[in-house]
């Protein structure tokens, strides 16, 4: 197998400032295709801001984001999605008044191509397409373990399953990179184990994963490489074992002894 010339996603000397507050400063990282990469750090370290910047929700003040080596400037969320990024949120963002299947179906949005006229005329005619989309929805739900829940209102699911539903919605858009923001938050140990298994299976179906997570066992277990942020700066990067023993990381998490 020939290694691709460029990582799927690379972030180069990226900074994000909100007014005077430097949320992310000068961070560089690489997410090679097919990997599970983690981003850790204490609360307020700038992890979610970095996610938001990569997915086009906030603008970078300097630095750049490259997709397969090509800089993508002025990224907007829908553009990020069309490149093949999908993400979940730290606090769930499901469409509350829709059923599970409808939520996942929204995820297929970018797969369907429908012009203005198509929306009016073809929307009904393309039975075949509709069936194909519905298959994708069912497959994504089955993949995260939500088979049989299609017609249930999304918000009636237990919390852990809502997280999975959000993952299913992200997967339905057939992403190449999945950004998961604290997917294990609020889960019990056995749910966390299941989640870790799910993330691995996602990677195994060819979707690269960039993960923000607080739960150390999960991170250490899953990640090939870990980036550690503190106060918006990258303080350490490397393989799990190396990161675990790095004094800077210990200090950042536990404070100075």
């Amino acid at each position: 197998m020939i290694a691709p010339a460029h990582p799927l996603l690379s972030v180069e000397r990226l900074s994000v400032a909100f007014g005077g507050l430097q949320a992310v400063s000068n961070v560089s990282l690489e997410v090679p295709s097919g990997a599970i990469i983690s981003l850790i750090g204490p609360n307020g370290a700038g992890k979610t801001t970095l996610f938001n910047c990569v997915t086009g929700f906030v603008a970078a003040s300097s630095g750049r984001v490259c997709w397969e080596g090509t800089p993508v400037g002025g990224l907007r969320p829908e553009r990020a999605a069309s490149l093949g990024m999908a993400r979940t949120f730290q606090n769930l963002r499901l469409f509350g008044s829709m059923t599970c299947a409808q939520n996942v179906r929204i995820g297929t949005h970018r797969l369907e191509n429908e012009g203005l006229l198509g929306a009016v005329l073809g929307g009904l005619a393309w039975r075949g397409r509709r069936e194909r989309m519905e298959r994708i929805v069912l497959e994504a739900m089955a993949f995260v373990g939500l088979e049989g829940e299609a017609d249930r209102p999304a918000t009636s699911l237990p919390y852990g399953l809502q997280r999975r539903l959000e993952i299913a919605r992200a997967l339905a858009s057939a992403p190449r990179l999945l950004l998961l923001d604290e997917p294990a938050a609020g889960m019990n140990p056995s749910e966390k184990r299941d989640l870790a298994g799910l993330v691995r299976r996602i990677r195994d179906r060819g979707v690269t994963v960039l993960l923000i997570e607080h739960d150390m066992p999960v991170v250490m277990d899953l990640s090939e490489r870990i980036y550690v942020l503190d106060h918006g700066e990258l303080i350490c990067e490397g393989a799990p074992a190396a990161v675990r023993s790095d004094p800077r990381v210990v200090e950042a998490y536990l404070g100075k002894a």
């Binding site: 999605a81 963002r93 919605r169 858009s173």
Partner: peptide
């Protein structure tokens, strides 16, 4: 288009996120 409308009505950010 209709689904996209409903999605935007409910959560503009999440809708943008899925493209």
């Amino acid at each position: 288009t209709g689904r996209a409308m409903r999605a935007v009505a409910q959560d503009r950010v999440a809708a943008a996120l899925v493209g």
